[in-house]
């Protein structure tokens, strides 16, 4: 453990310059593979299936980017990162981008020198407790033992929440979600806290999800989104607009089912611009005209990715809520393609 941290620091210190110097896109093209940092395993967001293929909502973003740049949504090396190792992995150039339930905060953006390209899930921190504990509100948790993943915003929000409510608690610091689950189920802690989406995903993987309740309080804002290193604007733009393409595609009704039809040309100029039949937005990014077409085709638009991985018909069963399109009263909104 200590070793990896130490080498991590050394890597940041001594290898970073080469990696940071602009040109991530060229590196990726030369390598023929996108290195995408994901979580160590959170069903619905990023987890390998029985065949070792990574699936999930965050993985969908990686695949769209790989499709846009390399033309192949499977040309990806997934790098599992914990809450603690993710930023070192990105800063040192071990990964080209992170798509890992990461909250956009001031310090991460400004001080850690990362660039959040957008938000793919508006979340907030919640608590989960066994039904048998008889807790109905987070305000009843005075004195409880709480499992948290270290290196997260969760850890800081938790301290603030208990402090401002004059309650005490016993934090049990944990490295990965899998470990947190095991500790929680073995009763080593009373409650588990993390992003509400993560709680839902974790609960879905339990044997008896019904025995656990997610408490009503949401104690923080957690806008989760993909991020890249500061200073390589070409790469940042590409990841940002790939995400925007997925979002706009849903808004404009481009789906993986009708995209081939629409790519022959429509009378909606914005659809045409996205799919490359009008103008040449791709060239401005340093790509061909079809980049967005491939990105959307890889796993479908934003809504499709949501429904397939974490939506109401999946075991995770998250409602769109804040993550509905702006037209439907949500916050998901892409700037225009023009």
């Amino acid at each position: 453990m200590k070793k990896s941290v130490f080498f991590g620091a050394l890597t940041v210190a001594s290898l970073a310059a080469g990696a940071v110097a602009a040109g991530t896109m060229d590196d990726v093209k030369a390598r023929g593979k996108l290195n995408c940092g994901v979580s160590t395993g959170l069903v619905g967001f990023a987890a390998p299936d029985a065949n070792g293929t990574w699936n999930g909502f965050d993985v969908g973003v990686c695949r769209a980017v790989a499709a846009a740049v390399l033309g192949d949504p499977t040309a990806i090396e997934f790098v599992p990162t914990t809450g603690k190792t993710r930023f070192t992995a990105l800063a040192s150039g071990e990964v080209d981008m992170l798509a890992r339930n990461t909250t956009w905060t001031f310090t991460r953006d400004v001080d850690l020198k990362f660039e959040f390209v957008g938000v793919n899930y508006y979340d907030g921190q919640g608590f989960m407790a066994p039904k048998s504990l008889g807790v109905t509100s987070a305000k009843d948790l005075d004195g409880a033992t709480v499992c948290i993943q270290t290196g997260t915003t969760t850890e800081l929000n938790l301290a603030d929440f208990f402090r401002s409510n004059n309650m005490s608690y016993e934090p049990v610091p944990i490295e990965t979600n899998a470990e947190a689950q095991q500790q929680y189920l073995s009763g080593a802690c009373d409650v588990l806290t993390t992003d509400a989406s993560g709680l839902a995903a974790t609960r879905a993987s339990f044997e008896n999800p019904k025995d656990h309740v997610i408490l009503p309080e949401i104690i923080s804002k957690e806008p989760l989104g993909p991020l890249v290193r500061h200073g390589d604007n070409q790469w940042g733009d590409l990841v940002r607009w790939t995400l925007n393409a997925l979002i706009s595609a849903e808004e404009l009704g481009i789906t993986s089912a009708n995209i081939d039809e629409l790519a022959k040309g429509t009378n909606n100029p914005e659809i045409n611009r996205i799919l490359g039949t009008e103008g040449d937005l791709g060239a401005m990014l340093g790509l061909d005209k079809q980049w967005a077409y491939r990105a959307i085709k890889a796993g479908g638009n934003y809504g499709e990715l949501f429904e397939k991985n974490i939506g109401e018909n999946t075991p995770i069963g998250l409602a769109r809520g804040l993550n509905a399109q702006w037209k439907d009263g949500g916050l998901i909104y892409s700037p225009p393609f023009r």
């Binding site: 200590k2 210190a13 603690k84 930023f87 070192t88 310090t107 001080d111 270290t150 610091p173």
Partner: peptide
């Protein structure tokens, strides 16, 4: 998860501040 100096200074502090070199 025992909170020794590697867990505080070399763990959470390092992580939350991003000051790897200084902490190490």
């Amino acid at each position: 998860g025992y909170m020794d100096i590697t867990g505080t200074l070399g763990g959470i502090t390092m992580n939350q501040t991003g000051r790897e070199l200084e902490c190490v």
